[in-house]
Design a protein around this nucleic acid. Structure first.
Lengths: 226, 226
DNA sequence: CGTGTATTTGAACCGCCTCAATCCCTGTGG
DNA sequence: CCACAGGGATTGAGGCGGTTCAAATACACG
């Protein structure tokens, strides 16, 4: 596993006009309750062990939710893209930490107490939260499927397919919001293996690279064909 | 991976008096909506691809939620014990199938449409559903953590610890509701490796076996110390 | 007591991890 | 404008762990 955690090799993210932050990713219904904050890359949004008093929604950019173990090894539980919620838990404290991955990541936070109260009086809000929770469930299930896949190239291929589906894109090429290290820690394999897997996929014609983070995916498989 | 799927080596489950089924595992609030059914071992409760019109809650026994891939390999997404819900999705069809693991497993099913309507008019019901969804999220996150663990003995150890926490038990010994094949498919390793891992754990004094399915766990680690 | 399945063990092979070195890309300072 | 520095990405070599194939053992049921 990977010891590499901090990093500041930013800048692959294209500059974005400040006013073009599409708040649309966060639920319109919850807008009155949202406190939107801007986060620099690799900043800790949520500390492992903090009280679970808030819920969060990625507005733009990307985040990772992860656990750092005593020995320094990092396990990424979830990669969060615009519209994805996190912080849902029944525990009193957060089991996992969360950081911004992309520079200028905007995250909405909501007071859990406040939102629960709002949900009690407005069924539409309750539905909205429920749906976001269900989406989280689906996302985690997909992740389990991918991590459980046998070979490294298959894992990476599945990961790329997932990103292709989740990132807004017209064609079949994506700009990865994450580093090789993130991919490695998410898939539970080493960085080197990620690279080799990408090389294999490239050689077999499954993908094409236009720069390390720009991937074109050919004949993407169906989601459940992980 | 494992080709082994069907099986009928039942009977390790101790006989249970019919009337002692603790309905308490299913939410009391939802009782008016519950349709409780009894399932024999390995019976398909929910078919992969079926319409997602119902939600489910294990009342007693155990279930597995899994995906069978075209090549016959099976991936277990979630092992469900009494009180655990499944079927939560935003999709129109179920991505995964679900089967009973234990003989005489009782499962409550709820019409999604009906329950959503009930949730709209009763905030308490909405909260109940939300909480069960959050529990599902926590369960899946734990699972991801375990699957992402590096070595096979660690995976198995973490799995056993999870079971110890989730199964109702007074001391530190459990009766596994699942076969080695189930463990293997859940952890994404081969059956043989599961066996060897168990042998290793036994030899190192971490566990003690009293029969293949009866495991006593010494010095169980904390949940996040996977 | 025999049959069928679950579980366990053995041996050989292959893939992934580790340790290292190199290349690449970006930003900085001269 | 160019050289340098620093972190990311890639590639190579060797060792270990897990898979696969095969076989033996244990256990429940008829």
């Amino acid at each position: 596993m990977n010891m590499h955690i901090g990093a500041s090799y930013a800048a692959l993210t294209p500059p974005r006009a400040a006013q073009s932050v599409e708040v649309s990713a966060a639920p319109h219904l919850l807008q009155p309750f949202a406190r939107i904050k801007r986060w620099p890359r690799d900043q800790e949004i949520l500390h492992q062990g903090n009280g679970a008093e808030d819920w969060y929604c990625v507005v733009s950019g990307a985040c990772r939710q992860c656990l750092v173990r005593p020995d320094g090894r990092r396990r990424i539980i979830d990669i969060l893209l615009p519209g994805d919620f996190f912080g849902f838990t029944m525990e009193s404290a957060h089991h996992f930490g969360a950081q911004a991955i992309a520079e200028d990541t905007f995250v909405a936070s909501y007071s859990r107490r406040q939102l629960e109260a709002a949900a009690d009086s407005n069924p539409q809000i309750a539905r909205e939260i429920r749906e976001r929770a269900f989406s989280t469930i689906s996302r985690l299930q997909e992740h389990i499927l991918v991590v459980g896949t046998m070979t490294a190239p298959e894992k990476v291929r599945a990961f790329l397919n997932q990103m292709l589906q989740r990132l807004p894109t017209r064609d079949s090429s994506i700009t990865l919001p994450v580093s090789r290290y993130d991919i490695a820690d998410q898939l539970g394999i080493s960085v080197e293996t990620v690279c080799r897997a990408i090389t294999v996929l490239k050689a077999s014609g499954a993908i094409h690279l236009g720069g390390p983070r720009n991937v074109e995916i050919f004949e993407p498989r169906r989601p459940d064909d992980v």
